[in-house]
């Protein structure tokens, strides 16, 4: 009944989709984390008004579905004059989404920094910037690193929704193939396994990066 051989002629479609998904996820992860870290610092140490604005942004994004954010950016923004290609809209939606979640996660890490670290930095004559970048930020990220990893994986998996605005990612490939050979179950099963593979790979990659990033512990 199941016929996976029917997928073989379309392997290049799957590979193309896989590459697009990896590209988009990689870009969104890097941009989203940088933006999230910036917002987290603004939220934790910024002026009250700045902290409030960031908080509204975080709550708005965290309490609405990704697909609605995507539709709003892709369909809604052109009507006020901001025309975006599907690919651009997809990237923006993912970055905006990941940035909101990582803001909240990284902020929790920053908040758990012992006060003594800041005081020690001040006593040693370090400026706010120096204390933040050389003393506080790495241990703060280390504390919340598992949560951050999971969130990045969730956003990568969420990219499946981009197929709905015709970004030619892995899910788009699955839809395309099943519309050609009518092998919907096989097509989606293979795609789901590819996503699972990507998720496991991403966790491994984060662990490797983490080992390097937090290697100061081993040096002592």
């Amino acid at each position: 009944m199941l016929d996976f051989a029917a997928l073989l002629p379309y392997s290049h479609v799957f590979i193309h989709g896989l590459i697009t998904t990896v590209e988009i996820s990689l870009l969104a992860t890097v941009l989203g984390l940088v933006l999230g870290a910036t917002f987290a610092v603004a939220r934790q140490y910024g002026a009250t008004w700045l902290s409030r604005i960031v908080n509204v942004y975080v709550e708005l994004i965290r309490n609405t579905p990704f697909i609605v954010q995507l539709f709003f950016i892709f369909f809604g923004l052109p009507s006020i004059g901001l025309k975006l290609s599907a690919w651009e809209a997809g990237i923006i939606a993912m970055v905006v989404n990941l940035a909101a979640y990582s803001t909240e996660i990284i902020r929790a890490g920053l908040a758990s920094t012992p006060k003594g670290q800041w005081e020690a930095g001040k006593v040693l004559g370090l400026s706010f910037k120096q204390t933040l970048f050389r003393v506080v930020i790495i241990p703060a990220i280390e504390k919340i690193y598992p949560a951050l990893t999971s969130q990045c994986i969730i956003v990568m998996l969420g990219s499946a929704v981009l197929s709905q605005i015709s970004v030619q990612d892995l899910t788009y490939a699955a839809n395309f193939v099943q519309s050609r050979n009518f092998r919907s179950f096989e097509s989606y099963l293979v795609t789901a396994l590819l996503y699972l593979f990507l998720a496991i790979l991403m966790r491994k990659a984060f662990n490797l990066i983490g080992k390097r990033l937090f290697s100061y512990r081993a040096e002592r």
Binding site: M1, I153, L157, G158, S159, A160, V161, S163, T171, A174, Q178, S184, F185, Y188, L189, T191, A192, L193, Y195, L196, A199, I200
Partner: peptide
């Protein structure tokens, strides 16, 4: 480790199979 969208497709198309 798999997208919710994929799980929905699999339930929708898999069970009709």
């Amino acid at each position: 480790g798999t997208p919710l969208l994929m799980q929905m497709f699999l339930c929708f198309f898999g069970l009709s199979l």
